[in-house]
Design a protein around this nucleic acid. Structure first.
Lengths: 340, 340
DNA sequence: CTGTTAGCGCGTTCAA
DNA sequence: TTGAACGCGCTAACAG
């Protein structure tokens, strides 16, 4: 049996309550007994029982996070950052992955509620979904605050912190235009998903501002947002035409697929075609030519998301429930002057 | 306030105990009342309070896992597999990352114990460490079973399930030898760490069995086991000599670094030099030439580790506390006949 | 400053 | 088949 408050109270001949206060460094109890208590605790190898504490205080000291799939580098980055920040704030993190499966999501929410999670962070899937309502409803009924990371919902009362991918893509395309590029292909996912549509907006604005017309055939829509789909898209593109001088991929993994496919076709990067990615993940580094990318400041994003969540947990209403984090460009070798 | 057993008991005019039994589908309570209880529970949106339950049963229904860093693809793979398996077994998973920092590890263990985790899985760091004792001691004192994943300790009473990397490397080098290779370079990490030393053993055995002498200069030791270190090692290698026909890297990320560096130096893969990796992670796929690798059967490994842990939790002693999981080769384009 | 008491929500006796 | 009573380990309110 583990040693309890009672054990150490008995040993010292004082009451449980005093021991409890002493261990929590409450100023009500005098220094000498505090010291005795701490020593006894160490001696008896006392470990507070958080579940008992949780029952008594009705607080779990835990926050939950839902990510679609931890095997995706970008989500792993988020999880890592959140874990660190949450721990530093004295909370535990309960992580769960949904695999983009609504059934799993529901199960996760049930578990979260049963564990009396104090707040949840959610990184929504990359598919056009309606799960929004299911999350919201169950959590709201139980008064559990929710903050989205890296997504955008304009629905009322939804709090989020996201990287400003529209602005980031704008900056990236701007960078290309300034290098002399006019024929820039954008490779992304389903156009109805915010993560793609926002990037398209940024892409469009950069071109328009420079008086470059937007050509529909430069906007490629893939079935997914991973390496294989980018390879496929690039192969198809190369069969049709070679008149573009740059490719803007929606993330680094896809950019890597683009670079490899181009090089396989003896097209030099960046001499013949420039390529840019997004997120500054490991994929932008493990390429034969380093890939110019955007650092989304994941850490900053997560920090602000956790801060916002903590505010809501404390009962304060955050003054600004929608935060956009400005990214920064990371130049590598894959982007250079336009040919000719 | 969340609805409790009491609420639904009151509503139905029966006792809390009956409700509790009914919700747990205990056969003592008759079907009709069971049904009424379940309906009332749904109606009142009852969610069992796991912390109260935990206190009453003295069980947290949670197991903990420690990984060095979730940003490393291989560990993320493990975490994902374990999460799924543990959930299916009706447990929750509490994940923590140590960053290879003993202080953090200690903190994690404290939290685990305080949360009355029922068992822990640990994926040890890749450095020669002594943390073993600290883990062991604290957990043993609290009677919390521990199973290691993907590591090897020959110390008594330590349970583990690991991929048989010695055998896997043997198979891989064998594969190369059968393709006619004799001058095979091995690129790994610190030789005193089991994950490297075991691979070296497999490498050595494959050569010896074919009567090929082991050349010390073919055994390269890096400061780390990531992309950059592999690039560096390959660059240095190429400055010295070109007499090798194959490179066996200790993991896919390093293999990718090798392939890229070779190609940058206009050395063709596999025509001039064959390359193999290990773990069959995404890195073996996002290369210009797909990298031949070893599938460690992470899922199988994790399943067995969880099974073993569950056995110990139930109080049974696993008949075989040391399990080696046999890997399978995955051939891709990076390995071919030796030149000349 | 310290002790007493009463729950927190649930499972588990033991009676009825 | 059900109900009453108790305890898990801790905190909180109040009393001394």
């Amino acid at each position: 049996m583990a040693t309890t408050l009672k054990d150490i109270a008995k040993k010292l001949g004082i009451s449980e309550a005093t021991v409890s206060l002493a261990l929590n460094n409450n100023s009500l109890v005098n220094e000498k007994t505090k010291k005795r208590v701490h020593e006894a605790a160490k001696e008896l190898k006392y470990f507070p029982n958080m579940i008992a504490k949780g029952l008594a205080t009705n607080k779990s000291n835990t926050i939950g996070i839902i990510v679609p799939d931890i095997n995706i580098v970008f989500y792993a980055n988020i999880l890592r950052a959140v874990d660190e920040i949450v721990n530093r704030a004295g909370y535990s993190l309960l992580a769960a992955m949904s695999n983009d499966d609504p059934k799993v999501e529901e199960e996760i929410i049930r578990t979260f509620i049963s564990k009396r999670i104090e707040g949840v962070l959610a990184v929504p899937t990359n598919q056009p979904t309606k799960f929004l309502t299911s999350y919201q409803k169950a959590l709201k009924e139980h008064n559990i605050p929710l903050v989205y990371i890296t997504s955008l919902y304009t629905i009322d009362g939804i709090r989020y912190v996201m990287g400003d991918i529209r602005e980031g893509t704008y900056m990236l395309v701007n960078h290309l235009v300034e290098l002399g590029h006019k024929d820039i292909v954008f490779i992304g996912g389903n156009r109805t998903v915010p993560t793609t549509s926002l990037r398209r907006e940024g892409y469009g604005r950069a071109l328009t501002e420079h008086g470059i017309p937007i050509d529909e055939k430069n906007l490629i829509e893939c079935d997914g947002i991973h390496y294989d789909q980018a390879v496929l898209a690039t192969e198809e593109l190369l069969q049709e035409r070679h008149d573009f001088t740059a490719i803007c991929a929606m993330n680094d993994e896809m950019a890597l697929g683009v670079v490899n496919t181009l090089q396989k076709a003896k097209i030099r990067v960046p001499e013949d075609v420039s390529v840019v990615g997004y997120d500054n993940t490991i994929f932008s580094k493990v390429s034969m030519v380093g890939i110019t990318s955007m650092d989304s400041d994941i850490e900053g994003t997560c920090r602000q998301a956790v801060d916002m969540l903590m505010q809501v947990i404390r009962g304060e209403e955050p003054e600004e429930p929608h935060i956009m984090v400005r990214p920064a460009i990371v130049q590598r070798q894959s982007s250079g002057k336009a040919r000719r």
